[in-house]
Computed example of a mutant assay.
Amino acid sequence: MTKTAAGPDVRTYVPEGAVDPALKAILGEGSTQRPELVGANGERLLLPEAMYDVLRQVAEALDKGMGVTVAPKNARLTTQEAADFLGISRPTLVRMLERGEIPMEKPGRHRFVRLADLVDYQQHQRNQRREALERMALESERDGLYEATDGPPRRTR
Rank of each mutant, 00 (worst) to 15 (best):
L47V: 07
D63K: 06
G67S: 15
N41K: 13
A40N: 07
V54F: 08
A61M: 08
Y52P: 01
Q57H: 06
E29Y: 06
D53R: 13
R44G: 00
E60Q: 12
E36P: 00
M51Y: 00
S31P: 00
T69M: 15
A59I: 03
R44S: 08
M66D: 12
E43D: 14
D63W: 03
A61R: 14
M66C: 07
V68L: 11
G67P: 11
L62Y: 03
A59Q: 05
Y52Q: 14
L45M: 10
L45E: 07
Q33F: 01
K64W: 01
E49L: 11
T32H: 10
D63C: 06
D53H: 09
L46P: 11
E29K: 06
T32I: 09
E36L: 11
L55F: 14
E29D: 09
A40I: 15
L62M: 12
V58G: 01
M51E: 13
G67W: 05
A40R: 15
A61K: 06
E43T: 14
V38D: 00
Q57W: 03
P48C: 06
T69P: 01
R34V: 13
L37D: 00
E43A: 14
L47P: 09
G65P: 04
A61N: 08
P48F: 09
E49T: 13
G65V: 05
V54C: 05
Q57T: 11
Q57R: 14
R56M: 10
R56Q: 15
G65C: 09
E43V: 13
A61V: 04
A50H: 07
L55N: 09
Q57L: 12
